[in-house]
């Protein structure tokens, strides 16, 4: 049996994105030396939303951005049923001396973020790297990784799945918690 409940709807996602943007502005001012980097494939959607929201708040800021593909930097190629198929490495920039904000939809074990940091370092040595996350699954970390900007913290056990849906791919914005018994 599959049990599903909605934890965020369109409106609450929008409120969270606006808040995250203001937190970013608080720390990064006019984003002069900041780069926003989405983690492929799903972090890209959140990163695009953040970028357009920031642009709405202050259209004069020019914000550098990219999307990093982590497939080849993962640690589980030989531990999965099928290999992860890579997405585009969309990084036409250098992160040398930059303040980087990594963006992903869900923070779970922390392994993707670890891979993303490795992948990021191939484009230069950033001054600092921060992490922005829409859903932080507490209590499920395998590595000592925390986010600096959190949309919503949830308590989910391993048999539960957090699913983030975006209008661009699923038709509407919402976050679900799915439990299979």
């Amino acid at each position: 049996m599959i049990e599903e409940r909605q934890i965020l709807n369109k409106e609450s996602i929008q409120i969270i994105i606006e808040r995250l943007c203001h937190q970013l502005i608080e720390n990064h001012n006019n984003f002069e030396n900041t780069v926003l980097v989405g983690i492929q494939p799903r972090g890209r959607y959140l990163s695009n939303r953040i970028l357009s929201q920031l642009n709405m708040i202050n259209p004069l800021n020019i914000i550098e951005s990219g999307n990093v593909d982590i497939s080849f930097y993962r640690d589980d190629l030989m531990r999965r049923e099928n290999p992860i198929l890579p997405e585009e490495m969309d990084m036409n920039l250098s992160v040398e001396g930059k303040r980087v904000v990594l963006i992903d939809d869900v923070l779970y074990t922390g392994r993707s973020v670890r891979s993303a940091i490795d992948a990021l370092m191939t484009f230069g040595r950033p001054t600092s790297v921060e992490l922005l996350i829409l859903i932080d699954r507490r209590f499920s970390r395998h590595l000592p990784i925390q986010s600096d900007y959190v949309g919503r913290t949830v308590n989910a056990i391993d048999s539960e799945k957090v699913i983030v849906e975006w209008k661009e791919v699923a038709g509407k914005d919402r976050v679900l918690m799915r439990k299979e018994e």
Binding site: F72, Y73, R74, D75, L77, M89, M91, D118, M121, T122, F123, G124
Partner: peptide, 11 residues
Amino acid sequence: IISQPIKKVPS
């Protein structure tokens, strides 16, 4: 990947 500055991946 092999046109990046660092061409090595840990796969």
